[in-house]
Write a protein that binds this DNA or RNA. Structure first.
Lengths: 235, 235
DNA sequence: ATTGGGCATTGACCAAAGTCAATTCTGATT
DNA sequence: AATCAGAATTGACTTTGGTCAATGCCCAAT
C-alpha cells in the first residue's frame, strides 16, 4: 500500500508525502492491542494498512459506545490536530492489524501551507460529518432490521444491479455495536430481515438475489435511497 | 450583530469580510418559512441573526428527522461548498427569524486563499463532528431522562457552580425532536428527571438548586462529564 | 480427530419508548 | 374577559429492543 493513494492524503505535496514516508512506522498489532486512549495527548495519526480498528469511548463503569470500525486505507486520530492535540476516542485493534503511524506535526504544517490540500481535507471532513448525520437519522427512522439491511447495502458494489454476494467484514457482535444494538438483537433482526426481504444467510456469507426488495425495505425509512448518491459524490 | 464576530468567520481577512458585508442580505422569515430543501442547489450560506432554524431531512412519506436547531450566531448551509453545491438538509424557520444570506462563492475563494482561515474552519468542523459523535454516544448510553438532563446542563453557564435557572429556548416538542424522542416521551421523561434529580419545573422555566445531582444522574452514563471540557476547548 | 473458547443463537422475560386518544393548559387574539 | 388553536400532559396499550441464562456452533490449536 502506498501512502500517496490514500483518500485523505490526496493533494498532498510531493515534499510532504516524501517527508511522511520517511517518518512512517508500521505497527504490527495483535488483536486487543490498544493504540491510544480517549483524552491521550496526540502526537501521531494513523492509517490502517490491514486489519480492523475499533474507535470507541467508555463511561467510568466501562460501558462502551463504538464510534466506528475502520479497515484498510482509513485514517484515524488526525482530528486531534484540531482538538488541542487530544484524541477524541480510544482505538483498539479488533483483530491482528498493521497500522502506519505518522507525525501529526507534518500534517499540520502541510495544512498550514498547502491550500489545495486543506480544501481536500475539508471536503473529506464534510463527507464524514454527513455520514455521521446519516447514522443519527438511521437511528431516528430505521428499526434494527432496516439498519442492518442498510449496512449490507453499503457492502455491495454500488454499480452492480443484479444479485450480490457479501462476506461480512468482521464479527456480527462488532457490526451490532457499530449499529448501536445488542448482539442478541442483531441476531434476531437479521432473521427478520431475511424473512422480510428474502436474503440468504449462511454464517457470515450473505447472498442478495434481489437487492431491490432489500432497498425497498430499508431505504423507504431513510431520506436518501440506495445507492445514496448524495453521500457518494464526494468520495 | 456584526458578521466579524461570528465564530465561523473568525480569521477571515478584511477584504473578505468587507465583501461579505456588501453582499449580505437580511431575510425576515415568518414561522414555517422554508429557506431551502434537502438536495437543492446551493448558492448561499446563512447565519441566524435572530429566531430559530430547524435543519432536517425527511423520507418520502414525510417522516422527519431533525438534524439540529440553530439560534443566534450559528451558520448553516456552508458545508454545501464541499458537497457538490447541494444542501445536505432542509432548513425551516420554527419561529419568526432574521437570517443573513451570504454567497458561498466568497467563502470558497477565501478558503482557497487564506490558510489561517481554512485552519479555523477545520477546527470548527472538527468540533461539530465531535458534537455529533457525542449525540450518537448519548443515544447509545443514555436513556430519555438523561438526554434531557444533558440538554439542560448545556444551557447553563458552564462556570457557575451553584444553583441555576433555565428558560427553555424553544418548544418542548422541538427539544424532543432534537433529542430523538416523541413529545409524549419527553413529557414523561422530564417528570422522571424531576423525580430523580430534584429539579423544579414550571412550564418552560426550570430551576436547578443542586446541579450536582443532575450531573451525577446524566454524566455517569457518558464518556465525558459536565462541563465537558473536551468539547469546550475548541469553542 | 478432539478439544476448548469465543461467537452466535434462542427462549423467556422485562423495561423503555412509541402510539393513539382524550383532556388540560397556555398564551395570543379578539 | 372570552375564545381558540396549538402545545403539553396523561392514560391505556403496543411494540421494540434489552437482559439474562442456556445452548449450539465454528474454528483454531493441539
Amino acid at each position: 500500500m502506498d501512502i500517496k493513494n490514500l483518500s485523505l492524503l490526496k493533494d498532498g505535496s510531493e515534499t510532504f508525502l516524501t517527508a511522511l514516508g520517511k517518518q512512517a512506522h508500521v505497527l504490527k498489532c495483535e488483536k486487543g492491542k490498544i493504540l491510544f486512549l480517549h483524552e491521550d495527548t496526540a502526537e501521531y495519526f494513523y492509517i490502517v494498512k490491514s486489519g480492523w480498528i475499533k474507535l470507541f469511548r467508555e463511561t467510568l463503569d466501562g460501558t462502551q459506545s463504538v464510534n466506528d470500525i475502520l479497515g484498510k486505507g482509513n485514517a484515524f486520530g488526525e482530528t486531534a490536530l484540531f482538538e488541542n492535540n487530544v484524541y477524541p476516542y480510544s482505538a483498539e485493534a479488533v483483530e491482528a492489524s498493521e497500522i502506519i503511524s505518522l507525525p501529526l506535526k507534518l500534517l499540520k504544517e502541510e495544512l498550514e501551507h498547502n491550500n489545495k490540500f486543506s480544501m481536500h481535507v475539508m471536503r473529506h471532513m464534510a463527507h464524514q460529518r454527513h455520514q455521521k448525520d446519516m447514522e443519527i437519522e438511521h437511528r431516528d427512522l430505521q428499526n434494527a432490521p432496516q439498519r442492518i439491511g442498510c449496512f449490507l447495502l453499503n457492502l455491495i458494489d454500488r454499480d452492480a444491479h443484479g444479485a450480490a454476494k457479501i462476506d461480512l467484514p468482521y464479527d456480527k457482535t462488532l457490526i451490532a455495536s457499530k449499529l448501536g444494538m445488542q448482539p442478541e438483537t442483531f441476531s434476531r433482526a437479521l432473521s427478520k430481515l431475511k424473512e422480510k426481504t428474502g436474503i440468504h444467510i449462511k454464517g457470515s456469507h450473505i447472498e442478495l438475489y434481489d437487492p431491490k426488495q432489500l432497498i425497498e425495505y430499508c431505504c423507504s425509512h431513510c431520506s436518501s435511497e440506495f445507492p445514496c448518491k448524495d453521500l457518494l459524490a464526494q468520495k
